[in-house]
Design a protein around this nucleic acid. Structure first.
Length: 275
DNA sequence: CTGAAGACCTGCCTGC
DNA sequence: TGCAGGCAGGTCTTCA
């Protein structure tokens, strides 16, 4: 479901409803998602201080007990959703965890495919955690730049699409926004990363930042099951130039949009604009 | 080391 | 109508 813009939309939505709320009870309805779920009982009585984001991880910081905050780290996988509802709202299909807050609000986690996962740790452990250590730069920060991308592409024969989706290079760029960014930069998804000029890589850096920011502005992309925490859809899908448009005409040059498979994922590109 | 392919899961859409 | 096959926003493991 979610790439960086969708996770960011979820983060701001959750924070607006749940910041400073105190946990009454957390219940999990199964022992695991992708990995075993942590034991949530220690969070009872703690206050939710902030919700941050790193890559596609949501980071819930709770007040803790003995001075140090607890960090709940949550990845939505492909189909994970958080919804804020009243306590007495009925559980939907595939609801796996519920957080009841003292205010009467209830945070529900639903995930049909169960590719999502979560971990609970002292705040200070996060920066040593394997999930954290494997992450590359944030695309919307200044350290994602021509220099950083140039360094990651140098000598690599892998197609640029898979390099851009590699979270150890730059985080948060998933299958949709990789295709959309490459379209804006005019680069063919199969082009070997190490054989793209500096000028064109500079375009790509700008395109990635623009694409992600525009998607956040639009409230994320709703293809089939992304919804915001209040159940409203995102609208960026209406602005796709290539994703899901194979067989249709390019809005810029009129050529046919094509679909190919790379590393097991669909890539969409304009046969006229991208080379 | 690199890159490709398979695996994890369920639901939905298409075509026969 | 029913059913098989393909496809889906992510990431980890395995294999060549």
């Amino acid at each position: 479901m979610p790439e960086l813009p969708e996770v960011e939309i979820v983060r701001t939505g959750l924070e607006s409803y749940l910041k400073d709320q105190v946990v009454k009870k957390i219940t999990s309805f199964r022992p695991n998602l992708r990995y075993p779920l942590p034991h949530f009982s220690g969070l009872t009585g703690q206050r939710l201080l902030t919700i941050r984001r790193r890559s596609k991880y949501l980071l819930f910081e709770f007040s803790g007990k003995s001075g140090e905050s607890n960090l709940l780290v949550w990845h939505l996988g492909m189909t994970g959703q958080f919804h804020v509802l009243p306590h007495d709202a009925q559980a939907a299909a595939h609801e796996h965890v519920r957080f009841d807050f003292c205010s009467g609000l209830s945070l529900r986690y639903r995930d049909a495919r169960r590719f999502g996962y979560a971990g609970l740790m002292p705040l200070s452990s996060w920066s040593q955690h394997p999930w954290y250590l494997s992450l590359g730069v944030e695309p919307l920060e200044e350290n994602f730049s021509l220099d950083s991308l140039l360094g990651s592409c140098k000598g690599r024969k892998a197609p640029i699409k898979t390099v851009v989706m590699d979270a150890s290079v730059v985080v948060g760029v998933g299958n949709i926004y990789a295709s959309e960014s490459l379209f804006l930069a005019g680069i063919h998804p199969k082009r070997a990363a190490g054989r793209i000029s500096k000028e064109r890589l500079a375009m790509l850096v700008v395109s990635i930042k623009q694409t992600l920011l525009a998607a956040i502005e639009a409230g994320g992309s709703s293809i089939s099951d992304f919804v915001q925490v209040d159940g409203k859809p995102g609208y960026f899908a209406h602005a796709f130039n290539v994703y899901g448009r194979d067989g249709q005409l390019c809005l810029r040059c009129g050529s046919i949009i094509k679909r190919i498979v790379q590393a097991g994922r669909s890539s969409f590109y304009c046969s006229g604009c991208q080379h």
